[in-house]
């Protein structure tokens, strides 16, 4: 930017505050352990050594919502579980993001019946939907990178 162009390579980088904050938010986003059903197993596979999630800064899967930024809703949400999901979402501090992983979380999946909430966006606002039943770990990583791109474009006032 300005200073580097004038004075050459001083080992400095200049950024806007917005870019810096978004950069820190994406590089160490801690997911909350919210695996419900089959997608949770693929999320665990993504966490394991073959498709490593810790290279994205997501090594720590916190079970406590108070210490996490990202809620990956992995699996089918039943009507009994929906109030629990909302309560956990409310307990997460800002800034927080939600990935709806899998078909059941995005739209109810193959279970179009009385017991399953047809899409977790009826309960919490969702940022990224990842399709698949279950989505491959690579698809989940693609969803996370999409979320990173989305966060990098956020304005500073997005999370009050």
């Amino acid at each position: 930017m300005g200073v580097e162009a004038k004075l050459g390579d001083l080992g400095l980088v200049t950024l806007t505050l917005e870019k810096a904050i978004n950069w820190t938010r994406t590089r160490s986003m801690w997911p909350m352990l919210f695996g419900l059903a089959c997608c949770a197993i693929e999320m665990m596979s993504a966490q394991a050594s073959h498709y490593d999630l810790s290279r994205f800064g997501m090594e720590l899967m916190r079970a406590s919502p108070r210490q996490s930024d990202l809620m990956i809703v992995a699996g089918r949400v039943t009507r009994k579980m929906a109030p629990v999901l909302r309560r956990l979402y409310d307990q997460m501090p800002d800034p927080k993001w939600v990935i709806a992983m899998g078909d059941c979380a995005s739209c109810g999946g193959i279970f179009n019946n009385y017991a399953i909430v047809q899409g977790v966006d009826e309960v919490v606002p969702v940022d990224v939907y990842v399709a698949g039943c279950p989505p491959r770990p690579e698809a989940l990583i693609h969803g996370i990178i999409t979320l990173h791109h989305k966060v990098e474009k956020e304005k500073l006032a997005a999370h009050a």
């Binding site: 109810g108 179009n112 019946n113 009385y114 017991a115 047809q118």
Partner: peptide, 11 residues
């Protein structure tokens, strides 16, 4: 729910 006169809840 599993009674036959209970609807499936199809959306």
């Amino acid at each position: 729910p599993l009674r036959k006169d209970y609807p499936l809840g199809y959306e």
